[in-house]
Amino acid sequence: MTTRVNPLSRRLIAPLRWAALLSLLVSVGVFFAGAGAAQAAPACGVLSAGAASQANDAVRSACGLIGTPYSWGGGHGSKPGPTYGLCDSANGAPNDCNVRGLDCSGMVRYAYYLAVGEDVINGTTRTQWPTSRAVARYHRADGTAPLLPGDLVFFGNTASTIHHVAMYLGQGWIVEAPYSGGYVRVAALSSHGDYYGAVRLYGSSTTPPQPGGGKYWVDTFANAPVFGSPTSTAGTGTLYQGTNYVYCKTWGREVSSGGSFNHWWLRTDPDVGPSGQWVSAFYLSRWGNDTAKDNNGTVIPNC
């Protein structure tokens, strides 16, 4: 026996099926549209607070490079800035000697040069990672919570296999020169699965410890001039030779003589001049180049 369907029922069921299908398609579209919106990159800029002014300026400089072509080996001339790269098919760069641009390490080098007027982070990714200019260093185990804008974030499973560097913007975002054929862009840090660690080149924007805070005792081998800032060249007083106390350190201009040099500056109260001045760690008696420790060997904390 054949069951017959009322023609009126057919006319009612068909629109209902189409309505259900349309509703499903709309739901799927909304879902994927929502997912896309959640992953949309923000405008390039300083996305969180707390970084040093030099680091914030470096972020702004890097953002000004958005759209610059990637070029394998680009940016590694005698001065920072875009250059023609290397043609290297083995590294996915068959035409980069014909492309004027920046690779990842050349991009961060140039951004900091534009920001501070000094070539502070020359080299490739693997030589940038161990830089002695770091005022702070973080590893994968530290997570990303300590990161501040301007930090250089490195990718690779080990120190010897680091292969990429980018600049942190804040809130989980980076600016990077990604790969041959690409352009400087904003991306999610999480888009790289092998985050290794980060380097900070300038101290945070928090106020340095003031007189009355923790003191670190150091010996100086000569009377040392003091200055109002780690970059100033106008002396403000003198710290006498002998045992003195300092509060903290920050990176600044180089003081050198012969083969000895130091970029660290120590906040102190001099014997002559106002309190809260800066003396070069070059004058420490017990330590070598770019080292800033107290007499017990304790690393003096960053300001």
Score class of each variant (00 low, 15 high):
Thr125Asn: 07
Leu8Pro: 01
Gly156Leu: 01
Asn262Asp: 14
Val165His: 01
Val255Ile: 13
Asn244Leu: 05
Phe221Asp: 10
Leu47Asn: 04
Ser27His: 04
Val299Asn: 14
Ala33Asn: 14
Ala224Ile: 07
Gly212Cys: 08
Ala188Gly: 14
Arg126Lys: 13
Gly117Ser: 08
Ser280Pro: 12
Ala188Met: 03
Gln39Gly: 11
Ala55Thr: 06
Tyr183Ile: 09
Thr298His: 13
Asp96Gly: 06
Gly50His: 02
Asp103His: 10
Glu254Trp: 02
Thr125Pro: 06
Arg133Asp: 13
Val299Ala: 13
Ala222Asn: 12
Glu254Met: 14
Tyr84Ile: 05
Trp18Phe: 13
Pro80Asp: 12
Cys87Val: 04
Arg253Leu: 12
Ala141Gly: 06
Ser71Trp: 09
Arg109Pro: 01
Ala33Trp: 15
Gly214Val: 11
Asn244Ala: 11
Trp18Thr: 10
Val186Ser: 03
Thr268Ala: 14
Val255His: 08
Val218Thr: 06
Tyr247Trp: 03
Arg133Thr: 10
Tyr84Leu: 09
Ala19Tyr: 07
Gly193Gln: 02
Ala62Leu: 05
Thr83Asp: 08
Asn6Phe: 03
Ser48Pro: 10
Cys303Gly: 08
Gly143Ile: 03
Arg140Asn: 09
Thr3Arg: 12
Ile121Cys: 04
Gly73Met: 04
Trp265His: 10
Gly64Lys: 05
Val26His: 04
Phe154Cys: 02
Tyr112Cys: 00
Tyr110Lys: 00
Thr243Lys: 15
Gly170Met: 10
Ser53Met: 11
Ser232Cys: 08
Ala41Gln: 09
Gly156Pro: 07
Ala111Lys: 00
Pro225Glu: 05
